[in-house]
Design a protein around this nucleic acid. Structure first.
Lengths: 239, 239
DNA sequence: TAGTGGTCTAGACCACTCA
DNA sequence: GAGTGGTCTAGACCACTAC
């Protein structure tokens, strides 16, 4: 199976930029040149360049060309939470996931409200603590609609639930909404995390939707204040 | 001057969705039908629909069509900080901006490091407190390169600096990077804000770049914990 | 099978930048 | 004036959905 041409161009250039082969400020070939060298049309090249643009890899100036942006200080991922794995990498220390609980049960009031399902509908509830450099810093509480995710296990929860959902189950995730706020920490936070003296905790609520617009997962990610970081990259939209 | 066709289509449909004329779940005309009715080509229609898609207005399914997403629970703006003005609206109470300081001075160590300029380079420094329902909740500290923004005043700072930069000065903003974290509150925070008992504060660092990739503004927005909220909407990207 | 969105083509004209 | 990116066209074939 042949990959889409525009994704091929996108992948070629994003990896060249990542590797440093194309340093910040470097000029990309013009759209016509790229079209010629890839044996494709200019519109297809533009599709690839617009992807690179939207993700912050390059920067385009009418009349001049496309140039590599300086992403050295752009802490990857370009946008989003510094993920668990990357936090471990960044801090250099060892990190691991402690699966607290993996159970199937009726939703109950809070998850039912968040997932917009009846309180007696079945859900999978996964509770995990994230330990970095010997300290439990993040508490992840995931809730999945059991009619969509029929089975989960401690093993799956210990690895990447994400890969399981998209790979094994073939679920097609379409979009997600995050809500970030700061709230008083609960008794559970103190029990499952090394919260020190902190009286508050950063709460990241994540609502995940499938391609058919069904909300099937709600996650509450609770971060210790001092270790929380979020990066957002936005292109200016003129209208 | 005629507006781009694809922006026209985008504006037509985004406003119809906002107004509720097109309710959640409604099916848009097919791409061919839209092309016909706007007297344009399908690729142009697709440009408009992809904009609507990226911004979370609609949702496309191959073989079925395009459908309006349910944004009722999507707190506008779809992504980003609940801005000062909107916070006022949401909370219903009166809100105002207190300009603390508007001075031109040498950058000094901190702003110089953030803006990546010499410490003796001139900058404009604007300090503003945001009051909502009688409480000073947000402290905005803006730093502008004075070689790019030659003049600022208390009046401009009291209104929309943003409009001044893009309108009056004609600056072309290209992109911005935000970094969100939680830090211990400073003496200045307590002096300029109604911080109550809170020992920590949410810090949003904003780096604003022009089209020529020059970093010209650095803003530190300091929010009282209990009033902070950030929304992020992301489409799933498959690669 | 008919209809839909996803990709792609091979042109075209425009506005802008730079020498 | 040569080169660049921004917009647009009028087709084409494909993969997927629904009936």
């Amino acid at each position: 199976m042949r990959e889409n041409i525009y994704l091929q161009i996108y992948n070629d250039y994003s990896s060249r930029i990542h590797s440093g082969q194309l340093p910040p400020g470097a000029k990309l070939p013009s759209e016509s040149e790229l079209a010629e060298s890839y044996g494709t049309s200019r519109e297809t090249v533009r599709k690839a360049l617009n992807l690179l643009f939207r993700e912050g890899y390059i920067h385009k100036i009418k009349g001049r060309g496309s140039f590599v942006l300086d992403m050295t200080r752009m802490d990857f991922p370009v946008t989003g939470l510094i993920s668990f794995k990357e936090m471990g990498d960044t801090l250099g220390g060892p990190s691991r996931t402690l699966v607290e609980e993996t159970v199937q049960e009726p939703a109950g009031s809070m998850p039912a409200r968040q997932l917009q399902i009846p309180e007696d509908a079945l859900i999978w509830k996964v509770t995990r603590a994230r330990e970095i450099e010997g300290e439990r810093i993040i508490l992840d509480k995931d809730y999945f609609r059991a009619d969509i995710v029929p089975f989960l296990s401690r093993d799956i929860a210990a690895g990447s639930i994400y890969e399981y959902l998209e790979g094994e189950l073939g679920l097609k995730i379409s979009y997600a909404k995050k809500l970030i706020s700061v709230e008083p920490s609960t008794e559970e936070d103190h029990r499952l995390l090394d919260l020190k003296k902190y009286t508050h905790i950063v709460v990241v609520r994540n609502y995940v939707y499938l391609e058919n617009t069904v909300l099937f997962q709600y996650t509450e990610s609770r971060h210790r204040l001092d270790k929380f970081q979020f990066v957002d990259f936005a292109r200016r939209v003129r209208r």
